[in-house]
Write a protein that binds this DNA or RNA. Structure first.
Lengths: 348, 348
DNA sequence: ATGAAAGCGCTAACAG
DNA sequence: CTGTTAGCGCTTTCAT
């Protein structure tokens, strides 16, 4: 009785191909490789290619990588894959990377810096050729280490103040300006912010963008109404909205740090018997999937997630090819306003 | 001027550690490896460990894999990462795999069988030790090939009729029974199905489960009201609901193939001036993230996504360890009913 | 234009 | 218990 015979149909190796084509493995290698094919006689090359074809030869990237010190693998580090913001970004990254012959491996840090360290280390050990990360905080010690190691890295949906790291982002200040402009156009004067953490570039940019936009419209951003939270989550949106409601200050609209925080505002407003948008208008940020399905449908700022991911991959590929930084260091994409049911004129 | 000096701080290799500890690389290897540590003198081992520590030695899994023919990498193949159903499953898989020292690499087939082939091949070439896939159609030629190659594989959220493939799933027949039971309890008699593709086990099980449940309640599933679509998407839900509305048959409730299809039903119902649930009740399936935020909040069947992913990883790990199939071939988890705003008593 | 040979970093017999 | 040797599958000098 045949024991696991199937498994025996061992994968053809370069040697096998060489033998079948009657050449030396070195020659077979040259023939199989686009780059070096010209070094070998056209007929011989064809013979090798044919042999490879019939044997169903699949090169072993592991072995190749051991020699070339390239894995054609990119590490993609994401803070939380459950946040609907990231899947489209990931897809943009993967599509572009795949075109270029790279595979991406995704890691989830769950917003845990310690875990982030480990993820980077593991991937480094696995010989990734570069990183794309959406985990950057404004203090970016871990990332600096990577860069010091000479490993290409680009940020997606994040940036660092000093511009020391390449990044693909959307223009958050412009986005917030859109949000505030929309609200002001509707007649709102007292606008609150339930913003995200200012330890993240997105949170900080939106926070500063908010204050700037208010100023531009001749409005003052009341300190008690201009809040930032610890995380971009629903509970944090709830907490901030509760604080807003308890502040004793009047407001007729809230700009939320992102769509999740907007949802948290929905909850608290409802708890206080305020209907949105008749009582208070709410504007979110990101236009995450299904935000058109909420109750009410969320007015929000759309950022081109897929394109942002794509751009990040472009930036990385450029760095991988040239080795040296020739292209732009930062790609900034434009957000747009999506008006839906959660914003309207202020009451009376 | 130093040229890329940083990069020169080359990663310490096993040889370096051995040299530093004054032993042969072979010994260093044994000392560093949990499994073989006992073969070496405790003191010597300690010396090696210390040397590794101070040199910041990181083993190169690529090189190891070349020798051991194990990559400690698992391929996770998903039909569409944009479907909110999958992120929690992925997380369940990754968490379990990571515990066991495996890394997972995720591929997106975008529901394209051709792309699926390529993804499997690529991962195979990258020497993955096994697969977890959620892409299985009822005809599973690609998968059979993998199994024939002797590569461990388990299905997640899918099963095949003949039980030839291991899988971790939720009990779809039971879930649909819950949905129908709920509706019948509310007083509905004419219940329609806007189901998913029966080329997928989930679609088929739910379809058959629906008919069985109706029968059990002494109701007949009208053929014109028992529809299945081509995909589990919003547009397909719309299309089916349109067809239901055009059938001329009366119905007071719809069981949708999944939550996305339920959303499609929402759209068509609204278009026809029917309010949910007063005019028609709708029950979804999956309890995907944010389904409690829809308008109305969706009554649906919750399946424990994270746990399903975890169970799939367990199944795979068992197979990886033992080599031979000793454990169960199928893990079936129980769904539960989540009653929200989209279901109520039938009109008049 | 092709063959020979060395080696990427590691593990696994095999000696001793 | 430890050193020696060979080799995983591939690429890449160096000869020829």
């Amino acid at each position: 009785m045949a024991v696991r015979n199937v498994n025996e149909r061992a994968r053809a190796t370069l040697r096998d191909v060489a033998r079948a084509a009657g050449v030396h493995p070195g020659t077979a290698s040259r023939a199989l490789n686009e780059q070096t094919r010209s070094l070998v006689n056209a007929e011989t090359a064809q013979r090798v290619l044919d042999a490879a074809e019939t044997l169903g030869y699949q090169p072993n990237p592991i072995a190749r990588g051991l020699k070339t010190r390239r894995s054609y693998t990119i590490g993609v580090v994401i803070p939380d894959i459950l946040n609907p913001l990231f899947p489209p970004i990931i897809r943009g990254i993967e599509d572009r990377l795949e075109q270029a012959g790279y595979t991406s491996v995704i890691a989830n840090t769950e917003n845990d810096p310690e875990r982030e360290r480990i993820d980077f280390r593991t991937m480094l050990a696995r010989q990734v050729d570069g990183f794309i990360t959406a985990t950057a905080r404004l203090d970016h010690a871990v990332l600096d280490e990577i860069v010091d190691l000479g490993v290409p890295l680009v940020l997606v949906n994040r940036r660092v103040e000093d511009g020391s790291l390449r990044s693909a982002i959307a223009d958050d200040r412009a986005g917030i300006k859109l949000a505030v402009g929309h609200l002001v156009g509707l007649g709102h004067r007292q606008i609150a912010l339930a913003g995200g953490p200012i330890s993240l570039s997105t949170g900080l940019q939106r926070y500063e963008g908010f204050k700037a936009a208010m100023r531009k419209h001749g409005l003052k951003a009341d300190r008690k109404l201009t809040l930032v939270g610890e995380s971009f989550t629903i509970p944090e949106g709830q907490r901030l909205c509760r604080q807003l409601l308890a502040s004793g200050k009047e407001f007729t609209a809230i700009v939320a740090g992102n769509d999740l925080m907007a949802l948290g505002c929905y909850d608290l407003l409802a708890e206080h018997g305020l209907v949105c948008p008749d009582g208070v208008s709410v504007v979110g940020y990101n236009d995450m999937p299904f935000s058109d399905r909420f109750n009410p449908p969320l007015t929000t700022i759309r950022i081109p997630h897929y394109e942002v991911g794509h751009a990040a991959a472009d930036l990385l590929l450029a760095q991988l090819d040239e080795g040296s930084p020739d292209g732009p260091n930062e790609v900034v994409l434009e957000p747009s306003l999506v008006v839906r049911g959660s914003s309207g004129p202020p009451p009376n």
